[in-house]
Design a protein around this nucleic acid. Structure first.
Lengths: 190, 190
DNA sequence: ACCTGAACACCGTTCAAGT
DNA sequence: ACCTGAACACCGTTCAAGT
């Protein structure tokens, strides 16, 4: 299997690496072009501007996440699958903070590719929640709303932990994963 | 009462305005200086660099938020006070997205002023939660951890809503404030 | 102590031109 | 269709100098 990566794919790969190393400001089109072996403005032939390139990076990562989620939940009981997926959500955020902040950052460009990837990621999560409700691991109710509750908690716990606003005194000892478990436990006993 | 605003205070005010209008990239030291009536590099006499100025902006806002929280909760039953404060947290985020993202963004500078303001904001929230536990509006347990759970949910709901990752199909109709109420309701019946 | 003007290095973006 | 080199406007930061 020969990997024939197009220039466009290489630009996205290189930009991904630069992002994780030093955040969006480290993704200069000059360095992207240089690492991809093209000129510093060749990216403009594939992307409208820098933000459009970053949107492609975020979309690619969302698709990769979706594959991970599917693999993680495959063949497991719904309650356990959901728990693993939420913990993976948090772990990914803590290990790849720049990518996390990019994906859930503010976009002034409405990238169709990114919107599509985000929609598919959410759909998968909703179906997982629905399965957990059917199996009795989660209480009944609108699955969209239950999903939003769970994702909001996992997301907020990760984001606050990343910014150091989550009880760093060590007293509460509230790791983001612990909060996920707290919520799941309370929901299970309702 | 004559308002004798120092240059430093004026720089922070001007930077705050620019931030809310167009985000951190709109806060150019040149424009800050110009609006404050000084040269484009006068800010360097008051702040180490641009990030240090933004840290002062964030710290000032955290202190203002703290005052709002105290005023909101003053004289109300703990359960209601907590609910109002969490809703205010969400509303503030939705109405001032750039400020919200700044405060809970990533800092490479460890500003003592910002760290102090963040710590005090968290302490106030913990004491509110503790009062709600004492009055029976919230279940018992480590107040630091209960606070983290509540803040993580409010924070995540607001952040996901801002980035459009919260069920925008309209089916679940999950506004951030609704999620706050969902969690409070579930905690009340535990 | 606080401020200014010039200068430097860097970056996103555009443009005319090349194959 | 895809790429290049030069150029423009802009920005953070530094420096020598002024009061």
């Amino acid at each position: 299997m020969v990997a024939t990566t197009s220039t466009r794919e290489r630009l996205v790969e290189v930009a991904t690496g630069l992002l994780e190393e030093g955040g969006p400001s480290a993704v200069t089109l000059r360095e992207v072009g240089h690492r991809a072996g093209v000129s510093h403005n060749a990216p403009y032939k594939h992307f409208a501007d820098k933000e459009d390139l970053l949107a492609a990076v975020a979309a690619a990562q969302l698709r990769a996440n979706r594959a991970t989620v599917q693999h993680l939940s495959d063949g497991r009981p719904p309650g356990e699958a959901l728990r693993l997926v939420l913990h993976a959500y948090v772990s990914r955020a803590m290990e790849h903070p720049e990518m996390f902040r990019l994906i859930y950052g503010r976009w002034r460009t409405d990238s169709a590719e990114l919107g599509q990837a985000a929609h598919e990621a959410r759909s998968l999560l909703v179906s997982l929640v629905q399965a957990a409700q059917d199996s009795g691991d989660l209480p009944p109710g609108d699955p969209d709303r239950m999903t939003a509750l769970l994702q909001a908690l996992a997301h907020g716990a990760a984001d606050l932990a990343l910014s150091g606003h989550l009880a760093k005194d060590g007293k509460g000892h509230a790791e983001p994963g612990d909060l996920v478990d707290d919520l799941l436990a309370r929901l299970a006993t309702t």
